[in-house]
């Protein structure tokens, strides 16, 4: 079974894949942001306190 490139099925799959890409990109940005905040909360002078609490 073969379809031309501009077949409706390809358009549908393209839309779905783009949406998934946007979600994954957003997820990556969110994880990056969370990491920055979490590391910022610990702070450069607080590593020992963090280790002591663990």
């Amino acid at each position: 079974m073969s379809f031309r490139d501009d077949h409706e099925l390809h358009k549908r799959r393209f839309g779905r894949n783009m949406a998934l890409f946007a979600v994954l990109a957003g997820f990556v940005v969110l994880i990056f942001g969370m990491t920055i905040v979490r590391v910022g909360e610990i702070g450069p002078g607080n590593e020992s306190a963090q280790e002591a609490s663990e």
């Binding site: 099925l9 549908r12 799959r13 839309g15 779905r16």
Partner: peptide, 11 residues
């Protein structure tokens, strides 16, 4: 394509 839609070609 209708059959494909029935077998998980969801948007």
């Amino acid at each position: 394509t209708s059959n494909l839609a029935q077998s998980g070609e969801a948007q």
